[in-house]
Amino acid sequence: MKDQFVDIILGAVNQLNQVKLPVWSQTDLFSTTYRGRQENVVNVVKTACQLAYHDDVHTVFELTFSKGCPGDVDADRYLNEAIQPVIVSTELKNFHVDCKYSFYAFGDADYMQDIVHIVDLATQAGLKPQSMHYATALSGTVEDLFRYFDQALTYAHDHIRHYVIEATISVNSPSLED
């Protein structure tokens, strides 16, 4: 939350665009979409958050992870890429994050067992899940959070045909100082 938010956002996106990414990407007026193998997408999004991080800036990231939309076929070839690290010239920090997320399973009548399992994975990851209305709050490091997202998405991929995770990540919030 800073006057120079455009520079912060585009700076992170431009740094990512300067390296060979194992994902397809498209930036528009509202967001940047990354599509490809799950592990690569999670790693690219984590790197984007780390590149946008500044010690003294309150930053909020809005994320959507999804699988199973029948019309989503852009750049399918990236789904079979090998798992690759994102190598950038900037040192990436591991910082504290607070997150709220919601997991949605579509087309499955008995989805609550899957949601319970996914929240249990957050507990095992040390992210201290707290129930909220229609969401779960998590608290930990950016590395732990994205490792958890990868685990939750792997579970969902193996057990659910169509799902979406909506997440809001907050960093350096002045609300925590109260």
Rank of each mutant, 00 (worst) to 15 (best):
M1H: 14
M1Y: 13
K2H: 15
Q4R: 15
D7Y: 08
D7N: 15
I8Q: 03
L10C: 12
L10P: 07
V13Q: 12
Q15S: 15
L16H: 05
N17D: 15
N17A: 14
Q18R: 14
Q18W: 11
P22D: 04
P22T: 08
V23H: 00
W24D: 06
D28S: 07
D28V: 05
F30R: 13
T32W: 02
T33D: 02
Q38H: 11
E39P: 06
E39C: 10
N40M: 01
N40T: 02
N40Q: 05
K46Q: 12
K46F: 03
C49M: 06
H54F: 09
H54P: 04
V57E: 05
V60G: 06
F65N: 00
S66T: 08
S66F: 06
K67P: 03
K67D: 05
G68Q: 03
P70Q: 09
D74C: 12
D74F: 14
A75P: 01
A75E: 05
A75C: 09
D76H: 07
R77S: 15
R77Q: 15
Y78Q: 01
A82L: 13
A82K: 11
Q84P: 00
V86S: 02
I87H: 10
K93E: 15
N94I: 04
F95Y: 13
F95R: 04
V97K: 00
D98F: 05
K100S: 13
K100M: 14
S102V: 04
Y104K: 08
Y104Q: 09
Y104V: 05
F106W: 05
A109H: 12
A109Y: 10
D110L: 13
D110R: 09
D110C: 09
Y111D: 04
Y111R: 10
M112K: 12
Q113Y: 07
H117A: 08
I118N: 00
I118Y: 02
D120E: 14
L121A: 04
A122W: 00
T123H: 09
Q124V: 11
G126C: 06
K128C: 06
K128I: 02
M132F: 07
H133K: 12
A135K: 03
T136V: 11
T136L: 04
A137H: 03
L138N: 01
S139R: 10
S139T: 12
S139V: 06
G140W: 06
G140S: 08
T141D: 09
T141N: 07
E143K: 07
F146M: 07
R147W: 13
Y148C: 01
Y148K: 03
F149M: 01
A156P: 00
D158V: 01
H159P: 03
I160A: 04
H162P: 05
H162Q: 10
V164P: 02
T168E: 08
T168H: 04
I169C: 02
S170I: 08
S170D: 09
N172T: 07
S173T: 12
P174H: 07
S175F: 14
E177G: 10
D178C: 10
D178G: 13
